[in-house]
Design a protein around this nucleic acid. Structure first.
Length: 669
RNA sequence: GCCCGAGUAGCUCAGUCGGCAGAGCGACGCACUCGUAAUGCGUAGGUCACCAGUUCGAUUCUGGUCUCGGGCUCCA
């Protein structure tokens, strides 16, 4: 055997993964969950072939944890079949941080919240029984017999060949199927026609026995369609999380709690930033003064950067006759996702789901010369999309939102340069908002598309070249593009490691054709411009939500709605406090004063809860000396006797410091 | 749209096995004038989401609707 570190180890013929782990050391033997043999995962108990490259999987790796989680899913399925005899079980994979299993309960029953505790209790019994996971190989016919009363399993087995790859993941490979049996020591009712225990169709591998599991928690119930198809039966899904130790489980639950604490909907209410009035309708937000201020700062920054980048500002209406979206093709492809039309004077007017056709009309308003290119039009364009009710998610997924939308019309030889500068622009903007960990995704031609293969190829290559020139790491999403264009999406990781898709850049050959766009070239001939769609924030509302969660509501100084709050110790310090606030305002800082109607401690607490970056306390000493007491957000103890002029200089420097220079901080993933 | 869950004061939540509804915080008023995360007292505030039904009586039970949350499907 060759180990991952390149060392070679001799073992007797027929030795198993467990033997190998034991030969390396007792700690590894204890931690071992499964093995990877020449890249394929196997049970610890499986004999190893001579000369194989073997690595032992433990919970230190995501692969090892996946084994743990998948095995826990089997235990859950067994528990459900104990509690609901006759339950049918579909699939139960490991997923990020956990697992799920889909069930079809007898008589169309549904799980309720109380059921999670019951299932969990039964799972703990199964784990206490320390049942082995026994792998068995069967022919396809045997498999069909074994799961005769499990229609979902039958479908998977029958799918061999037809959907071989998918089926292989569920334990049905070409020529036969594998199962895992948990012999049931208690002789309780068993599932799937087995004579001794719970049997599930499965590729494996699994941990040696259920006793290796135990640090798990069932987290939520959901409905899920069989095979993800909404026209097929709806199954009952149970989600859980599973870890290798109580500590790892607790840490995970703490991370989940932290994410809840940062939820932009919660902070949006607590910090008085925005809300969704039911009177207006689902998915339609209003921004309150403080949220509006943050949003305006985002917009101001964006406008200034676009102005410096040679963009021109345009404005377009919110509704348009249907003919515009017929020409663009959107009505043909996305009518379901658009708000329904209003009928007026014999025409149908739709709220716009996109801004691009309107920008094209501006381009087409007169003949264009090559001398005008590249033409870059920018607009904060508010669009409306009829998102299905179940997908709405605060500002992250709303029905009305505003794109920092721009369309660049250029000549062929300008395309690469535009894309390169766009990528630089994107990264600069993201860094400005504290997002420094990015990666890109290149999405290629989907199954349903318009245009020619050659055009798609050309556009995709232009994007790929731009990414490679910029040296940005990227993954490829085959078939992930829009119907009219391939795209680059930029993803960022926030302060607690969650990934968000923000910016998008699309190269489009189709709209210029559909709208018969042209320019007169240096050769006096007519040419078709290329078009680039791009949004950097993506949606202002969504980006705002990401910022709220990223900063946990504690905006950096330059974005904080209230930057400084001045607290007079007593009423007779009020005049001085007001003059301090006025000096700060004169220096371009946002400062408020809170009169001494409440005890100082209460006012400090309130300011802290509002996450004000600087709380200033002024009393007798300060009035006499022209100083302030400075309580900085996040610092242990306040400073006393700071000269006001010094503080102002400090704050101005901090606001400037938030702006990365041309070299910029932040790493490119 | 589908499944599960929730909707009681501005917020967070108790509560009523069917008999005119409660706390804390917040708001308002008065007093307190205080040096860094909750001063005291008082007052106001609710068609118990909405609409039907059952009942002598419904916030409570039943049905429907709306909104919200978690998933699924979807995301130009």
């Amino acid at each position: 055997m060759t180990l991952p570190d390149g060392s070679v180890r001799e073992l007797p013929a027929g030795a198993t993964g467990a033997d190998l782990a034991a030969s390396v050391g007792p700690r590894l033997a204890k931690a071992a969950l499964a093995v990877s043999v020449d890249g394929a995962e196997r049970d610890l108990g499986a004999p190893l072939p001579d000369g194989a490259r073997v690595s032992v999987l433990t919970a230190a790796s995501e692969e090892g944890r996946a084994v743990l989680r998948h095995s826990t899913a089997h235990v859950m399925a067994q528990a459900v079949t104990r509690l609901w005899p006759g339950a049918r079980y579909a699939i139960g994979p490991a997923i990020e941080d956990g697992f799920y299993y889909d069930f079809d309960l007898p008589g169309g029953a549904h799980f309720g919240d109380d059921d999670l505790a019951r299932i969990e209790a039964t799972m703990r019994e199964i784990i206490a029984e320390d049942q082995p996971f026994v792998r068995e190989e069967h022919s396809l016919d045997e498999g069909l017999g074994l799961f005769a009363d499990q229609p979902y399993k039958l479908e998977i087995i029958e799918g061999v060949g037809a959907a071989e790859r998918e089926a292989a993941q569920e334990g049905a490979g070409s020529g036969g199927v594998s199962t895992y049996r948990n012999p049931n020591a208690q002789g309780a009712p068993v599932a799937a026609g087995a004579d001794g225990g719970f049997v599930d169709l499965c590729r494996g591998p699994h941990v040696p026995s259920t006793g290796r599991l135990g640090y798990f928690k069932l987290t939520k119930l959901a409905a899920a369609y069989w095979r993800g198809d909404e026209h097929r039966p709806q199954l009952q899904r149970v989600y859980g999380t599973a870890w290798e130790s109580q500590q790892a489980l607790d840490e995970h639950l703490a991370r989940v709690a932290e994410a809840e604490r940062r939820d932009h909907r919660r902070l949006g209410a607590e910090l008085d930033l925005f809300h969704f009035p039911p009177e207006i309708g689902s998915g339609l937000a209003v921004f309150h003064p403080k949220g509006g201020l943050v949003r305006r700062l985002m917009e101001d920054y964006s406008r200034a950067e676009h102005e410096a980048g040679g963009y021109e500002f345009v404005y377009t209406p919110h509704i348009t006759k249907s003919t515009l979206f017929e020409t663009s093709g959107h009505l043909g492809w996305y009518a379901d996702g658009m708000y329904p039309p209003m009928e007026m004077e014999g025409a149908s007017y739709y709220p716009k789901p996109m801004n691009c056709p309107m920008h094209i009309l501006i381009y087409n308003s007169r003949q264009r010369s090559y001398r005008e290119l590249p033409l870059r039009m920018f607009e904060f364009g508010t669009v409306y999309r009829f998102e299905r009710s179940g997908v709405l998610n605060g500002l992250l997924r709303a029905r009305g939102f505003t794109q920092d939308d721009s369309h660049i019309f250029c000549a062929r030889d300008q395309l690469e340069g535009e894309l390169a500068s766009l990528l630089a622009f994107v990264l600069r903007l993201l860094r400005r908002f504290g997002l420094t960990d990015f990666e890109a995704e290149l999405s290629t031609r989907p199954e349903k598309y318009i245009g020619t293969l050659e055009e798609w190829e050309r556009a995709t290559e232009a994007l790929r070249l731009a990414l490679e020139t910029a040296g940005i790491a990227y993954t490829v999403s085959e078939g992930g593009g829009a119907f009219y264009a391939p795209k680059i999406d930029v993803h960022v990781r926030d302060a607690i490691g969650r990934k968000w898709q923000v910016s998008t850049i699309q190269v489009d050959f189709q709209m210029p054709q559909r709208f018969d766009m042209s320019y007169v070239g240096a050769d006096n001939g007519r040419h078709r411009p290329y078009m680039v769609h791009r949004a950097l924030f993506g949606s202002l509302e969504r980006f705002f939500a990401i910022l709220v969660e990223h900063y946990a509501g504690a905006f950096p100084l330059w974005l904080a709605p209230v930057q400084v709050q001045v607290l007079p110790v007593r009423d007779d310090h009020h005049g001085y406090a007001t003059s301090v606030a006025a000096s700060l305002a004169g220096a371009g800082l946002r400062a408020t004063t809170v009169a001494a109607e409440e005890p100082l401690g209460a006012r400090v607490r309130r300011a802290k809860l509002e996450k004000v970056p600087y709380v200033l306390v002024v009393g007798d000493d300060d009035v006499a000396a022209g100083t302030v007491g400075v309580n900085t957000r996040g610092s242990e103890r306040p400073e006393r006797g700071v000269l006001l002029a010094e503080l102002i200089e400090r704050l101005r420097a901090e606001v400037r410091q938030d702006e990365p220079g041309p070299g910029g901080a932040g790493k490119v993933a």
